[in-house]
Design a protein around this nucleic acid. Sequence first.
RNA 1: GGCCCCUUCGUCUAGCGGUUUAGGAUAUCUGGUUCUCAUCCAGAAGAUCGCGGGUUCGAAUCCCGCAGGGGUCACCA
Length: 482
Amino acid sequence: MSTPVRTRFAPSPTGLLHVGGVRTALFAWLLARQNKGAFILRLEDTDQKREVSGADQHIMDCLHALGLEYDEGPDNGGAFGPYRQHERLAIYQKWAKQLVEAGRAYADPYSPAEVQSFREAAQTAHKPFLYREHRPEQPPVWDGTQPLRFKSDPKPYKWHDAVMGDLSTSPEVIDDFVLLKSDGYPTYNFAHVVDDAEMQVSHVIRGQEFLASQPNYLNLYEALGLTPPVLATMPHILGPDGQRKLSKRDGAKDVLDYIRQGYLPEALLNFIASLGWNDGTEQELFNAQQLIEKFSLERVQRSGARFDERRLQWMNGAHLREQICMTTEEQLAYSLGDNFVQKNFWPSEATADPAALLPIFKLVQERLKYFDELPELTRFFFADLPVDPTLITEHKQLKKLSKGDLKTMLEQAQATLQASDFTNADLTDRLNKLLEETGQKPAVLFSLIRIATTQAPASPGLAETLTVLGKEVSLRRLQQQL
RNA sequence: GGCCCCUUCGUCUAGCGGUUUAGGAUAUCUGGUUCUCAUCCAGAAGAUCGCGGGUUCGAAUCCCGCAGGGGUCACCA
C-alpha cells in the first residue's frame, strides 16, 4: 500500500490571492481529491512585517468561493494542527535544537550590515553570494537572539520533479541559509520542510520561484533524516505582455473579483487548469469532477502561460450554456443570489420572484458571458425604458421609411397583438401572418416591433420576448412608441 | 555575473523519429440560422515549429552550440 496522498496549499497572508496562487491550490486539491487523500490549507505567516490584516480570511474566502474545500486548515482544524505557522513556533524550536545538537546548525555571529557587505562584495565581483564562504570557525553558542543558520553539506543533486522532469545541480548552489530568524520565527525555507514532514504531506506543489532553492531543501531533508515528498514545480502565469509574472499592473484582478463579476467557480477552475494543463485530447471544457478524474502532474506544461481574459469569457459562457438544461429555480437562486458574495446580479428594477425570473434567464442565458452583464441584457423586461428615437433613425432598414409608414405598421402590429393570447405559438403564428399581410420583410417589421417593445439595442427573439413581456406591457409600449 | 528553467498560429495548446501539405480551441473576418445581440452551423485567414549546426533514408520530435525570455543568488515567501 502506498502512502496516502496529502497535499497542501501554503500561501503567506501578505495580500490578495491571484490566479497563479489559485492554480497551485487547484492542482493540489485535484490531486488530493483524485486519490481520496487530504487537502490542507496552511498559512505561512512567519513574516510579521509583510503580513496584511484580513489576507488570511481573504484566502479562505477565495478557496470556499471556488469550491476548493480543504480538509484541514486554520478555521476547521485537523489532526496535524495548528495550521498557522506563528502558532507552531515551539515545533520549529524543537527541530532546530535537534540540528544544533547534531552539529548541523550554528549561530550567525555577524551583524546584518556585515552580511550585507559580504553580499555586496560578491555582487561587485559578479559572483553569487554564498554565506558559507564566511562560515565562522568558532561560532558562538546559540542563545536564540542570533539567526540560526543551517550548516550545509554542499554536494551535487539529481532529483525528479513531477512537472519539470529530471533536474540536477552542482554543489555551488547550496548554502548556509537561515533557519530561525533573530526574532525567533522560522524562515520559509525551514518552516515548510518541518511542517510538510509533521503534517505528512506527500506532494509539494509550488511555483518555480522555489526551484533554485530546491537543492538546499534536499540538503536539509538529508540533515533531518527525512525522505523528501514528491516535488512538483509549476511554471508562472504571465501577464498579457508575456514578459513577467501576472500582477496588479496588468489589470489582474484577484479571484474574488471574478466571482463578484459573476463568473462561475467551475468555469474559473476550468480556465485556470487549462493554463498549462490538458488531458491530451481535444476536450477543452471540463467540469470539476472531470478535472479530478483526468488531472495528472505529468501533463502539466513546463512553460509559462499568458492570462487571456477573452478566453476566460468564452469558457464561462460555454459553462453557462452547458447548465441550460439543469437550470431550475433553486439553481438560479443559488447562482445568482446565494453565492457567497451575496450579490444579486439582476437589475435594480427586477422582481425578486424566482418563478418570474426563470423564463427571462432562460432567454438571455445563451448571450451571457458572465452575470454582471445581466442588467443591460434584461432591464427592459422589468421597466419601460424611455423611447429612444435613434434606434429607428439609425436602423439601416427602418431609417429609409417615412413616419407615416412606420405609424401604419405599428398600428397593424397593435391590432394583431390585441387579438393574441400571447402564447409563444400564437404570437409566432400571428406575426408570420402579419408579415404576409403587410408584405414587409422581417428585417423591417420585426425590427420595428422589437424596438418599440424593448427600446433596447439587442434582445432575444421577438416572439419569445413578447411572450415573457405579456400582453399588457407589450401593447402599452407599442402605444408609447406611437 | 554564476546557477537553473523555458521557447509550436495573436493567445491557450496537440505533437513524444515517418500516418503532418503541423491538429484543436480561442480571438479576428465572411456566409447561413424569418429581426437585433448572442448561440449554433459552414468557411477563410493565421505557425518558415526561436536561430545555427549535427545524428538519421527521414526531425517540431534525438544531440551540441547560440540567442531570447523567465527564475534565483534575503533574518521574503
